[in-house]
C-alpha cells in the first residue's frame, strides 16, 4: 500500500495546478523511491515529467509499484478543499479503486477526508535520454514568466538564442518584433535574482509561446527555473523542488523556415 504525508499541501496543490491545463488523465506511478508522473499533452508537442522523491514526504511508505490513474480536473476539485498549510496524506491500497486524501489543519483540530475514484489509464511511456545540453540557463522563474507573457503579445513563437554574450528571447509578429536579452548576473545579496548561463556551444531554437506560458504556471513552485537547450532536441524547462524532486517540461522545437 501507499502512504505518503506532506507537511504542507502547498507543494502538491501547486504541482497539480501547474500541469492540469496541459495534461488531463495521467498515472501517478508510486514505488519506494517516490511518486513519478509522465504525460504528453493532447497534441503530443509537450511532455510533463514530475518526480516527488520519497524524501519529500514524511513518512513515505510504498511496498510495491502502484499506478494511480487520475483525472487531474477531478483531483483539482478535491485539492481545492485542502488549505495550503494543511498536512496532506495520500493513501492507496495495492490494487486501488480510489485514492484517499486526508487534509489536517492541526491548529484547528480539523480533519477532512476524500476518496477520489481512479481510472485505468493505458499511456505510452517515453524514454528520455540523458542529454549533455549545449546551453543551460538558470534564471528567476518570475522573469521567465514575464518574458513569455510579454512576447506572447507579439507572436505565437519565440526564438531562444544562447551565446557567450547572454541569452536572447526574440519574437516577430504582424505588429512588429521584440526581444529581451539577459546577461549573466550574480547578485551576492539576492541569489533568487541570479541569471547563470553555462554554454558549451551557441544554440538557437524556436518554440511555441502557447506551451511556454503554460509551463510558467509552475512558477510558484520555485524561485528559479532552468532552461536546457541543444540543437534540434526538445527544450527542457525545469522547476527544481527541495531534496532533488522536480517538475520538468519538455517542448519539441519548431523546425524549418
Amino acid at each position: 500500500m501507499l502512504e505518503a504525508r506532506l507537511d504542507t499541501a502547498n507543494l502538491f496543490k501547486s504541482a497539480v495546478d501547474a500541469i492540469k491545463d496541459l495534461v488531463q488523465d495521467c498515472n501517478f506511478d508510486c514505488n519506494d523511491s517516490g511518486i513519478a508522473l509522465q504525460a504528453m499533452d493532447n497534441s503530443h508537442v509537450a511532455l510533463v515529467s514530475m518526480m516527488l522523491k520519497a524524501e519529500a514526504f514524511s513518512p513515505f511508505r510504498c511496498d510495491r509499484n502502484i499506478a494511480l490513474g487520475v483525472n487531474l480536473t477531478s483531483l483539482t476539485k478535491v485539492l481545492r478543499a485542502a488549505g495550503r498549510d494543511d498536512t496532506l496524506t495520500l493513501k492507496a491500497e495495492d490494487a486501488p479503486d480510489v485514492l484517499n486524501l486526508v487534509f489536517e489543519a492541526t491548529a484547528q483540530d480539523r480533519i477532512s477526508e476524500y476518496d477520489l475514484k481512479l481510472m485505468d489509464i493505458d499511456q505510452e511511456h517515453l524514454g528520455i535520454p540523458d542529454t549533455e545540453y549545449a546551453a543551460t540557463i538558470s534564471m528567476p522563474s518570475a522573469e521567465f514568466k514575464r518574458i513569455t507573457t510579454d512576447l506572447m503579445a507579439m507572436s505565437e513563437s519565440v526564438t531562444i538564442e544562447a551565446t557567450k554574450d547572454g541569452v536572447k528571447f526574440s519574437s516577430t509578429g504582424d505588429i512588429g518584433n521584440g526581444s529581451i536579452t539577459l546577461r549573466q548576473h550574480t547578485p551576492v545579496d539576492k541569489p533568487n535574482e541570479t541569471v547563470e548561463i553555462e554554454l558549451s556551444e551557441p544554440v538557437a531554437l524556436t518554440f511555441s509561446l502557447k506551451y511556454l506560458t503554460n509551463f510558467c504556471k509552475a512558477q510558484p513552485l520555485s524561485n528559479q527555473v532552468k532552461l536546457c537547450l541543444s540543437a534540434e532536441v526538445p527544450l527542457m524547462v525545469e522547476y527544481g523542488l527541495e531534496g532533488g524532486s522536480y517538475l520538468r517540461f519538455y517542448l519539441a522545437p519548431k523546425i524549418g523556415d
Binding site: 517515453l126 519548431k254 524549418g256
Partner: peptide, 14 residues
C-alpha cells in the same frame, strides 16, 4: 514558416 515537431520524434516509446 517553421513547423511544429512532435515530442515522439525525439523520445522513443518504451
Amino acid at each position: 514558416s517553421s513547423q511544429q515537431s512532435r515530442i515522439e520524434g525525439f523520445f522513443k516509446v518504451q
